[in-house]
Design a binder for these strands. Sequence first.
DNA 1: GACAAACGTCAACCGCGTTGGCGTAAGGGC
DNA 2: GCCCTTACGCCAACGCGGTTGACGTTTGTC
Lengths: 239, 239
Amino acid sequence: MAKNAVPEEERRRRRPTKQGTVLTHDLIVDTALRMLREHGAQGFTARRLGLALGADASALYRYFAGLDELTRAIADALMQRAMTGWTPGGEWRADLRDLGLRIHAAYLAHPQAAVLAASRVSGRAHEIAADEAILGVLRRAGFADPAAVRIYHVFVDQALAFAALDAASLALPADAREADEAVWDATYARLPAETHPNIAATSRLLAERMNASAYPAALDLLLSAAAAERAATEAPTQP
Amino acid sequence: MAKNAVPEEERRRRRPTKQGTVLTHDLIVDTALRMLREHGAQGFTARRLGLALGADASALYRYFAGLDELTRAIADALMQRAMTGWTPGGEWRADLRDLGLRIHAAYLAHPQAAVLAASRVSGRAHEIAADEAILGVLRRAGFADPAAVRIYHVFVDQALAFAALDAASLALPADAREADEAVWDATYARLPAETHPNIAATSRLLAERMNASAYPAALDLLLSAAAAERAATEAPTQP
DNA sequence: GACAAACGTCAACCGCGTTGGCGTAAGGGC
DNA sequence: GCCCTTACGCCAACGCGGTTGACGTTTGTC
């Protein structure tokens, strides 16, 4: 029968909502992602999500046990978005740089989910695929297994850690972010050179970097250190 | 008069609470830290904090404009714990390594608080002192200002980001952590070599590192890259 | 055409952060 | 020693959050 080809998800009974929309796991997750991107973390609540779907908030509980499970489902999609379309290019440094920036960007696109997801081991297909890819790049580049695993570990945790840190500040309510910026202007920019010579001397440079993520620079430093390590192993001599 | 030696904080009028405790900024922050450690982030609310102090939650608003400001105060208390007793030793690499490990350790000592605080700019005395110290070490080591600021930014954010990441997994409820470990055993350890050759080949090494923080390795890689950069600047020649 | 299950809706519960008004105790001026 | 100001803690309430159980309605199945 043709019905067997329909995914189980779509075989369930559907009743349209009062506004006519038909709820689905995917529709709920996609709507949640859109809300997060468009209205920020403070605009994302179960009640508002229900409103955006034209349904009562309590209808969500037919699909997810709670907000916790919903955010986990959202998080599951992040690594997928990071990895779709990626293929190894052959140059290990460029490959890792690309992967790192992809993961960072994918998480930052949805800060709320990233904050909750970054520290968990999902063990799902896309996370495993990313790990396999990173290890593969390092081992094909000639790193011995212990070094490959060590650098892999730092690489993954660095990407997730910076993603979580940057996401957390993006996920702050708008007023809290403004408060942080006001704090900076009111203190760092006004420190006298007598008591804080190093901050005062570099305050213009500090201000420039204030709102940018340190991740790209951190990633480059990691890759430089890894390259130096590999060079030392490959040609362990100085004439 | 001797009273002049008393910090202004303690000169204010004090009225004991119904249970007899006398509220102070420091007492509130310390109690908050203790609550976070003992009962987790979920158990930390303004109402419960008030209860633990023997006061009404609304009494806190005489000391902090809101939970936001209290969080900032908590963040600064952590940085104070990281910085007390530190003095520059003269060798910039050792100094930075020491500072990084101190900050990481201080935050990890209060995982729940670290999760809340790591992404915030407190703008208070101890955070500023840490920033001044780090910039000072780098500039005295001979880094030009742009490089010093870039490395400072990576250094600080990396320390806080790894602290937050590691803290988040420490802060998970025990059953969630066991679930994560079970997921690892059930998936990563059993992946066949045909589909995931790189994970399978290194699974023993991966398992060893699984529960350790990648921060010390990340810190060492950062310092290596910074040292290489400085060496290139100092002797900027190739014959 | 009737039945049972799946589904959306409604009303309510409890806890959250926060606020404004009220009582009260401490300290200074005389 | 008295009074008056003022800082402070307490109380009640508001709006909003996640979540739940009961209730009706739609839908596929026989």
